[in-house]
Amino acid sequence: MSVEVLSGRPLVGVLAVQGAFAEHRAALERAGAEVVRVRTGADLAGLRGLVVPGGESTTLRVVAGESGLLHDLRAAVDGGLPVLGTCAGLIALSEEIADGDEPLIGGLDVTVRRNAYGRQVASFEAPVEVPGLGEGPLTAVFIRAPRIERTGPEVEILAELDGAPVAVRQGNLMGVAFHPELTDDLRFHEWLVDRARAHHPVLGTETKEARRVGAQ
């Protein structure tokens, strides 16, 4: 019997090719998930949710591209797996990257531009409202952040800063330009854990009825 069934906590993975793995794990555990790291396609088995963390997207492209992991991740996204991508993770989920690079995982109908807020000395933190996920501002930490330049018709904008979207959602995919894992605000991780509870690794995201059937 799996850890997940024993604990009642949904199994959520954090992509651990390179980047801020530990901070996401801590936030997800506080939000009620059982957390595993994902470094190969085999690690995706049984997951109900996934975080693609910040890091260097070129490193992700080299390491996860060659191993076939990006391909497996795309299949998981197409299968309805709930995914939260932060910073480089947003880049990874984007269908289009403005400088002409091929998409990494894709699935989120947006165009992003890498490092568009400037180099490290321009990295900043600012208060951002995310009314769709709860009242009150959170502190958004932008580090060499990507900018969302286009959003498709299916994409819901959850937060904006200076007229540009900084948090977007499309179905079970959430892309965030900043780093919620560097603060104590759990709204994004709670959203993912909530979606993970409603998602079955085999049956997809269905009704409670389907979930109950799937658990038998």
Binding site: V17, Q18, A22, S123, E125, H179
Partner: peptide, 18 residues
Amino acid sequence: RTGTMRVKSGHAQMLKGG
């Protein structure tokens, strides 16, 4: 706000595993 400790040390967090 630029140059905060969170922004500075946060960048190093993104380099981890690299």
